[in-house]
Design a protein around this nucleic acid. Structure first.
Lengths: 224, 224
DNA sequence: ATACTACTTACAGTTGCTGTAAGGTAAATT
DNA sequence: AATTTACCTTACAGCAACTGTAAGTAGTAT
């Protein structure tokens, strides 16, 4: 089921948007706590965030920036101000699309559908900077290079990308990739880490997997 | 170097757009033969096509459809008619973004930049209607379903999609998939055709591969 | 110097894909 | 209706790639 979070302060408009998406079979959640909507959105783990840019309290821009910095949900911005600068600012912040409100429900659905198609859910792609990984095929893409990783390599990299820039502990990797963290030789992790590094190296990504001795690993993709 | 093709009949506007992109360091080509721009675009192999929807001769919609059916370039539509229907139609045809002209150059650049970013040049995806196939991983996507085909299945489907809606002969399939059309038992083609059909059936695509007795096969994806 | 952690390489079991073969079904031709 | 031709289906075994095990090496901290 595809989940959509709606962040909109105008109650009437929010209900209308929610209804529009519900009619199409989406699972919709209206976010009501405009002072700190971050927690609600993180709890929900939506496939798409529809965000009004003119919110009380924290501005929509700030929220957009915050979400983009630590989540991978695509964001569709709603704005009443038909200003070019607003759009450019939001693009700079990493928003994925725009709509000037009020807008036709079909238009909203079309844009949302396209975002869901190209990003989340349907395509199952996670991104870190310019690096993107298809979690179905484990196809890794960077600029004009690409490479198909094996299943184990892909699962490891997926965990690293999802937690980036935080580190991922040995336990998390063992349970994330092999299902349990007990009765497993840690060597298996090291072996596959070597294999992943070799694969990454062959597409010019030497040294992006860092070892944190005694703790785990993390990704270093700041300078791509 | 990132190549952009501009298909625009208004000479003044075309020059302005070309200049806008050139200033940013893109390699731009204005397409001048509006009667048959397909060949020019194929020859150019651009990373992005900027397409005016109101062209003389063949309409922009048709060109968009044609390009989407056999290329993987992202397409940015320019339209003077600020009509919702146009947008929806074009979205249905597989266009990737829209702009109402006249528009601010920065806005055009921002949108184009985003398309180039998300499509990241080499994605190697071919599309037929709502069906899309990644030719690196043979991941087939339709709406919210997806499936990873085997190499042989994927190669066959790729040929069928690339030639769609025309038929593909036995010879073309044999040489396209196995490299040569001689000394090969035609049975191998039939076996893998069965396997492909079974895979397609398991994601709800029964009966889209048609047999043309004595000639070959073709795809029937009109009603997706 | 020693212990501990992390890395590397080789090897063998397993899995899934592929082509071969053989037999069955459907359509055209006589 | 019988026969021929084209096409479809299923089972089987070889092969390639991925995976975990094992053993040994390199690096780091105490």
């Amino acid at each position: 089921m595809t989940k959509i979070a709606i962040v909109e302060d105008d109650e009437y408009l929010r209900k209308e948007i929610i209804l529009t998406f519900k009619k199409k079979g989406y699972l919709v959640s209206g976010i009501s706590s405009f002072v700190a909507p971050e927690r609600d959105i993180l709890d929900l783990q939506p496939d798409l965030v529809v965000l009004d840019i003119n919110l009380p309290g924290k501005s929509g821009f700030e929220l957009c920036k915050w979400l983009k910095a630590r989540t991978s949900f695509p964001i569709l911005i709603l704005t009443a101000r038909d200003k070019l600068n607003d759009e450019l600012t939001a693009l700079g912040l990493g928003a994925d699309d725009f709509l000037i409100k009020p807008c036709h429900p079909d238009r909203l659905l079309a844009r949302a559908g396209r975002l869901l198609q190209t990003y989340g859910k349907v395509k199952n792609i996670i991104q870190c900077g310019e690096l993107s990984l298809d979690t179905d095929t484990y196809k890794l893409v960077l600029k004009d290079r690409h490479r198909i990783l094996t299943e184990t390599e892909g699962k490891i990299l997926r965990l690293l990308m999802e937690k980036h820039p935080q580190l991922v502990s040995h336990k998390e990797l063992l349970s994330g990739v092999w299902g349990t963290e007990e009765f497993i030789d840690e060597n298996i992790l090291q072996v596959n880490m070597t294999r992943l590094r070799k694969s990454l190296g062959e597409m010019g990504l030497e040294g992006i997997v860092m070892t944190i001795r005694g703790q785990g690993y993390n990704l270093e993709v700041s300078d791509l």
